[in-house]
Design a protein around this nucleic acid. Structure first.
Length: 174
DNA sequence: CCCTGATTCGC
DNA sequence: GCGAATCAGG
């Protein structure tokens, strides 16, 4: 893939919006997150002050300590922390919320889905629930996105749905 | 182990 | 210039 002017603009936009490098890479397509990060640095775009790692200048390179070009941007970084972050801490919190609501909030309606992180296509990974929610033709369509244990395609809630033919299961097999 | 970004360096 | 490998932190 070549870094066309279009792609660079999209990269700038998404990066400034706070998307992670892997998400940007997924959206651009054909590039890895490393490629995105590398490009960001080459473009001298402002990095993340404290997103994922404090590796601004505190880390000690093992190979050789050349001249680190990235250091001055730290002051102009805004408070643009995103809430759709998939960091371990935040994700853990959401799991607890999910567990609570699943046992507490269980009405008789079959259309209600426990909770979803409302992830878009690019947010899905190997370990997020890929259960589709809503009408794909409508704008609010999204995926469940909750943590799926054992790297299964669905979370614990939806994997039951996936293997259940219909919502009203008949226990009397006759 | 999952994720995050930062840096180096062979290409 | 590009990005995989590597490093470092949460």
């Amino acid at each position: 893939m070549n870094w066309t002017d279009e792609r660079v603009e999209k990269l700038k936009k998404l990066w400034s919006e706070g998307l992670s490098a892997s998400q940007i890479a997924a959206q651009l397509g054909g590039v890895s997150r490393n490629a995105v990060i590398g490009k960001v640095h080459r473009l001298n775009l402002p990095g993340r002050a404290k997103a994922g790692g404090t590796a601004t200048a505190a880390r000690t390179p093992k190979r050789s300590a050349a001249a680190p070009r990235a250091a001055t941007y730290a002051s102009r970084v805004a408070t643009r922390t995103v809430t759709r972050q998939q960091g371990a801490t935040m994700l853990k919190e959401e799991i607890e919320i999910d567990a609570v609501s699943e046992i507490t909030y269980r009405p008789a309606s079959n259309v209600v889905v426990p909770i979803s992180r409302r992830l878009g296509l690019t947010e899905l990974t190997e370990r997020t629930c890929k259960w589709p929610v809503g009408d794909p033709l409508k704008d609010d369509f999204h995926f469940c996105g909750n943590d799926s244990p054992d790297s299964s395609p669905y979370c614990t809630y939806h994997q039951r749905m996936a293997y259940q033919p219909v919502h009203d299961r008949r226990r009397n097999n006759g």
